[in-house]
């Protein structure tokens, strides 16, 4: 029986394919990680989410 691919694994693979967007979001958080608040990096997260969703559809 082929192993079912878990949703988290699928998501991780999609994030890996969006490395540019992921790095941009990661840099935005890590630039000042002592002062993170809700939606601080909303713009770059939206880009990451859009990329991940398009990757998942493929």
């Amino acid at each position: 029986m082929p192993e079912r691919i878990r949703p988290v694994q699928k998501l991780a693979e999609a994030v890996a394919k969006c490395s540019v967007e992921a790095a941009e979001y990661g840099k935005c958080i890590c630039a000042d990680y002592n002062n993170v608040y809700q939606n601080k990096c909303a713009a770059s997260f939206e880009k990451l989410r859009a990329c991940v969703m398009s990757q998942k559809k493929k």
Partner: peptide, 21 residues
């Protein structure tokens, strides 16, 4: 949740990740 998971994956790589990915 999916959004938190996605964000954490990106932060983990950026903050702690090795050079080889």
């Amino acid at each position: 949740g999916r959004d938190v998971w996605m964000a954490a994956e990106a932060i983990y790589k950026e903050l702690h990740g090795n050079e080889d990915g």
